[in-house]
Nucleic acid binder design. Sequence first.
DNA 1: AGGCATTCGTGCACACGTTCACAAAGCAGG
DNA 2: CCTGCTTTGTGAACGTGTGCACGAATGCCT
Lengths: 226, 226
Amino acid sequence: MPSDRSRRRIPDATVARLPVYLRILTEQAEEGVDSMSSDRLAELAGVNAAKVRKDLSYLGSYGTRGVGYEVAYLVYQIRRELGLTRDWPVVIVGAGNLGQALAGYGGFGERGFPVAGVVDIDPGKVGSVLAGVRVRHIDELPSIVQAKRVSIGVIATPSLAAQDAADHLVAAGVTSILNFAPVVLTVPRSVEVRKVDLAVELQILCYHEQRRGGGLHAVTTRSATA
Amino acid sequence: MPSDRSRRRIPDATVARLPVYLRILTEQAEEGVDSMSSDRLAELAGVNAAKVRKDLSYLGSYGTRGVGYEVAYLVYQIRRELGLTRDWPVVIVGAGNLGQALAGYGGFGERGFPVAGVVDIDPGKVGSVLAGVRVRHIDELPSIVQAKRVSIGVIATPSLAAQDAADHLVAAGVTSILNFAPVVLTVPRSVEVRKVDLAVELQILCYHEQRRGGGLHAVTTRSATA
DNA sequence: AGGCATTCGTGCACACGTTCACAAAGCAGG
DNA sequence: CCTGCTTTGTGAACGTGTGCACGAATGCCT
């Protein structure tokens, strides 16, 4: 019985913060903390306490007034809401620099996203083994996706190959894509795409950096925690 | 004196989109396109046309009614506003999997962010050369930052070392940080931090994926939760 | 020159997100 | 039980972002 509550829509901004709370709570649980206030969690997450409470209230009323939240229970509820009660195998397209780094990044599988496969279009790369996973040809994508029930694909190809990779993923039945290539992908409405763009992030930093320089003085330490 | 306009504050949401417009416009310019309407740019960027116009209007009135925008001029203006008229050397902390991939990623330097150095705390990694850059010890960070006037640092360390890396960067004088480690960093107010968190992105995809499955069809994986 | 088609720039209304402030609800101690 | 302290949950105000709709400006054609 997924409760009534699980049908409720949670704001995007909140969904984006839940993973952060989850990580912090998990860490705290490991350190033996079993109860925590919204104030403390807010401090650790670097956000406003009211925001924490409102975010958590979308999951239900799992706190105890005057006391706080029971860490273990909250961890369970967030995991359930995010759909993390089971593993979500991912397939990586592109076995270049980035693809290798991603496949080799241990925290991937540990966090519930085992690498179901790595594929590349270059026959020269097919067959090599990286981080215990053999690179296979992109033509095998559909069989990998179906065999392992993969619904998440990661694009780690050069820009020019990214749209092609997306097309392959969609054709194979993948419904969520994490795209590291700096291009805007065209996919069916039903497919969810999230983008991680290094250059964009750097350019945003750059904007603020340049703007700061426009001031006059080279200010430095104004220490404060978030 | 164009500076009047450059003092104006541009909304964060717009700043985050400008790099996308910039990339598209640059590509189009290379393909010989020299004029473009907001409609066309919106289509290529996957956003609303009114949004494109409003975004660009923060830079000034650089369009021509009835015609569109001159691509080359717009490229120049966006680059100027983002502060991309000069190179911004970056220093990478952490020479592990990710650090190597980042240093080896060519598009880095090409886009105006040359790698001024890669440092690690592990003496075993110091001295090795990756992508033409020799890995140096983290103690050399201050001299690298000062010698090359670095203001942007990239953290590519394991989680546990990230706060330490941030402290080193701040102490060395870096004022902008791009953090790949899944932790919340504590830094002085004057330092700008942006986060790229793989696990968070995957978990967000996951939420929607799970939610979609919550429909009716008795697909796949419902049975096998631990 | 005048009319028509096109496209920019922007005012306005609405949606979304954040923060404050406070009542409600619990615990502790006498 | 009652008082006082703590912390949640949420209504309401405020701020930011989005998208429509339309006037204003421009080019083209006759």
